[in-house]
Amino acid sequence: MKVYDLINYLCYPDCRGDLIQRSENLLCVKCNREYKVYNDICVELLPSKMFFRVGKNEVEIRAIDSYKKIFGEPFIWKDNPSLWGLDIPEKYVNKFKKHKHVLYKLIPEKIKMSIDVSAGSGRFSYSLIDRANIMVFCDLSVDSCVYLSQKIEKEGVKNALVVRCDYLSIPFKDKIFDLVLCNDTLIYGYEHEIKLISSIYKILSPDGIAILDFANKYHHLFLGFWHKPYTVGYSKKEMENMLRKIGFSNMEALPLYYDLAKDLDEQSILSRIIKIILPPTRYIWKVEK
């Protein structure tokens, strides 16, 4: 599979114009802007301008600064890309396994069109290649896109592509994906979250499902739980309100307890007691239109 096979689902993020193939690259028929394709399986589809927002606190300001830096990074094909999430510290391995275990309870066994928005290293979604007819990984990070492209090439995967994009100006046409994943990304402030959820809603097919997660602010408050910089937590009600504001109506939320990382299905007596006392670390939401 090549980027050109996905051309009917792509568009220029500024004018929403259709794309056509020009030699080895893609061309917007509406504004004549050309986009570079790398090794047939990766395309860079950035908008002309970054999404503008004003940080309301120190956490949001740091997130915006990071976003500007990543957005402005030129695309260079690197031999050894370095990206966050590729190497999981030993003390977080069980937490990652628990997160993925809960996540995959919500994912169908067979999917036609699937996308991971803000894929990172693909640690949550790469194995979906075996379930999906078409799997798309998108991320703003150059290192993430190069790493995933190289992995797809090396393993000879035939149903996956990579798109470097700004998910706040997402370069896909409306209503095309049956499954949209977004993990560890709705953590940068209310305005960011609303814009990203809106992007997800637009590209989700009428019968599709989106699986998203938010950090629980009460877990942070109760335990002072470690989390990487640039994160914001929400109450369950605040999460639901954001999803409903964009238009999602059919919702299911699964609590995720990192504190019970060694008990995947939380069946022990101790786990059941802890769940009564402690708030969940996160909520993973399965939502439909």
Score class of each variant (00 low, 15 high):
Val3Met: 08
Val3Gly: 00
Tyr4Arg: 13
Leu6His: 06
Tyr9Glu: 11
Leu10Trp: 03
Tyr12Arg: 13
Asp14Trp: 03
Asp18Thr: 10
Leu19Gly: 05
Ile20Asp: 09
Cys28Ala: 10
Glu34Val: 14
Glu34Arg: 08
Tyr35Leu: 03
Tyr35Trp: 10
Tyr35Arg: 06
Tyr38Ser: 02
Ile41Phe: 10
Val43Asp: 08
Leu45Gln: 09
Leu45Glu: 06
Pro47Thr: 10
Pro47Leu: 07
Lys49Leu: 09
Met50Ser: 11
Phe51Val: 12
Phe51Ser: 04
Phe52Thr: 06
Arg53Asp: 01
Gly55Val: 02
Glu58Lys: 14
Ile64Trp: 13
Ile64Glu: 11
Lys68Tyr: 08
Lys69Ala: 13
Pro74Tyr: 11
Phe75Arg: 03
Phe75Met: 14
Trp77Val: 11
Asp79Cys: 05
Asn80Phe: 10
Ser82Ile: 13
Trp84Ser: 14
Ile88Glu: 07
Lys91Ser: 09
Lys91Trp: 09
Val93His: 01
Asn94Trp: 07
Lys97Met: 08
Lys98Phe: 04
Lys98Asn: 11
His99Glu: 13
Val102Met: 05
Leu106Thr: 02
Glu109Arg: 14
Glu109Gly: 06
Met113Thr: 11
Ser114Ile: 00
Ser114Asp: 09
Asp116Leu: 04
Asp116Gln: 09
Val117Ser: 03
Ala119Val: 11
Ala119Cys: 14
Arg123Asp: 07
Ile129Tyr: 12
Ile129Thr: 12
Arg131Lys: 15
Ile134Pro: 00
Val136Ile: 15
Cys138Ala: 01
Cys145Lys: 08
Val146Cys: 06
Ile152Pro: 04
Glu155His: 11
Val157Thr: 04
Val157Asn: 01
Leu161Asn: 14
Val162Leu: 07
Arg164Met: 02
Cys165Gln: 12
Asp166Trp: 01
Asp166Gly: 07
Tyr167Asn: 04
Leu168Arg: 14
Ile176Ser: 02
Phe177Asp: 01
Leu179Trp: 03
Val180His: 01
Val180Gln: 02
Val180Phe: 04
Leu186Tyr: 08
Ile187Asn: 14
Tyr188Ala: 13
Tyr190Ser: 01
His192Phe: 15
His192Ile: 09
Ile197Gln: 05
Ile197Glu: 05
Ser199Leu: 03
Ile200Glu: 02
Ile200Asp: 06
Ile200Tyr: 06
Tyr201Phe: 15
Lys202Ile: 00
Ile203Met: 02
Leu204Phe: 06
Leu204Ser: 02
Ser205Ala: 15
Ser205Tyr: 09
Gly208Val: 01
Asp213Met: 04
Phe214Pro: 04
His219Ala: 08
His220Asp: 10
Phe222Ser: 08
Gly224His: 02
Gly224Tyr: 02
Gly224Pro: 03
Phe225Val: 10
His227Ser: 13
Lys228Asn: 13
Lys228Leu: 13
Pro229Glu: 12
Tyr230Ala: 09
Thr231Pro: 00
Val232Leu: 03
Lys237Trp: 02
Glu238Lys: 06
Phe248Leu: 04
Phe248Asn: 09
Ser249Asp: 10
Asn250Ile: 10
Glu252Cys: 12
Leu254Val: 12
Pro255Cys: 06
Leu256Pro: 03
Leu260Arg: 03
Leu260Asp: 02
Ala261Phe: 11
Lys262Leu: 14
Asp265Lys: 07
Glu266Asp: 12
Glu266Ser: 13
Ser268Ala: 01
Leu270His: 11
Arg272Asp: 00
Ile273Cys: 03
Ile274Glu: 10
Ile276Tyr: 08
Ile277Ser: 03
Pro279His: 05
Tyr283His: 11
Tyr283Trp: 14
Lys286Gln: 11
Lys286Glu: 03
Lys289Asn: 14
Lys289Ser: 05
